[in-house]
Design a protein around this nucleic acid. Sequence first.
DNA 1: CCGCATCTTGACGCTTTCTCTACGCCGCCG
DNA 2: CGGCGGCGTAGAGAAAGCGTCAAGATGCGG
Lengths: 222, 222
Amino acid sequence: MTRVLIVDDEPQLLRALRINLAARHYEVTLADDGGSALRQAAQFHPDVVVLDLGLPDIDGVEVVHGLRGWTSVPIIVLSGRAGSQDKIDALDAGADDYVTKPFDIEELLARIRAVTRRASPHETQPAQFRIGERTVDLAAKTVSGDVRLTPTEWRLLELLLRNPGRLISQRQMLAEVWGAGYAKETHYLRQYMAQLRRKLEPDPARPAHLITEPGMGYRFTP
Amino acid sequence: MTRVLIVDDEPQLLRALRINLAARHYEVTLADDGGSALRQAAQFHPDVVVLDLGLPDIDGVEVVHGLRGWTSVPIIVLSGRAGSQDKIDALDAGADDYVTKPFDIEELLARIRAVTRRASPHETQPAQFRIGERTVDLAAKTVSGDVRLTPTEWRLLELLLRNPGRLISQRQMLAEVWGAGYAKETHYLRQYMAQLRRKLEPDPARPAHLITEPGMGYRFTP
DNA sequence: CCGCATCTTGACGCTTTCTCTACGCCGCCG
DNA sequence: CGGCGGCGTAGAGAAAGCGTCAAGATGCGG
């Protein structure tokens, strides 16, 4: 299910979008200013952000910058301003599309489909991995042998499994799982990596697949 | 260099776009109908396609379908038709963006930047190097043959490998790896270069790729 | 309101990595 | 021939990073 974060300060627009998106089986979260938008994005991990430029607290372009600091989630900007320079600024800040108000809701939906289509070839990737005796299915969110993982554990494991053999820096793990601003909290990583190894590795004390690279990060070795 | 295929049947628009794009160091190819657009795309392998919907031979949406049959190159559709349904059809056919004529050339350029930015992490510089028997992958942070490097070793090696054949001064190495203020600590370099050679060179005593230039610095020779 | 699962936070011993000192080798020059 | 500077090697102590246990918050559903 595609997760959408909508950021706008007009309640009626929020409402209209939420209803339309929910009817099409999107999972929707709302925010009505820039600060809560950044917090929601870190917590909710949307697959696409619909962002109004005219927010009460922060300039919309700054919100784009804030998001781009740690995520490449597609961003569709809404704005009442039709000037070219506004569009150029937003797009160059990292937005993927720019829609001028008033807009047709069907057009916005088509643009959401367009950006998510491109950003999510996830669905074609293999979703099953073996770790020792266990089999992890990222799509079904299941682990063989009656093992259960918490949401945070899943996010962490998914990040590692989607990059087999590749080193993932501590910085990136903290940013993608906990959100920007957690770059220093490395003890979270130790905590949760230990948890994952206890649940998945045959010998948690001597991990064979969830490898530590001291001072750098972690790596999943198939 | 980014390669752009422009498809339109108005010669003056083709001309204007070609000039603007060439001035920004894009490599441009032109087509004035759907058939030649598909042929050009197959031959030229553009990084982005700018496609007018109103073509003399084939409907633009059909061109989108034709392209999507074998390539995921970003497509920006131009059109005089401002109706929502036209946009939806084009976007759902596989287009990435839809711009209504008349449009500002700077805005189109920003949209080209936006779609190519997203689609082109595959155009990154090669991250694999051979040193004797070993293969070093800077992106995955791996070395063939079960060799592991420490963070400092990686920083040093990366600096050398990203400048193949070029001499790197001791001063620059110390500044980039250890920070300003370490310009005199040349024994660090000796220490870590020895470590790298021991781990990477076939005969560490007689280095073939990580070369010392006495009194100057070091050099990576492929 | 309570209990449970999950997320945070703190403390401690252990391992890896970094930093620094010592010493031998070699070519250069007086 | 002997001192000197730059380089390579080895090793020890200091510092940083890691794994683990355990206990305090927090949030959610009953």
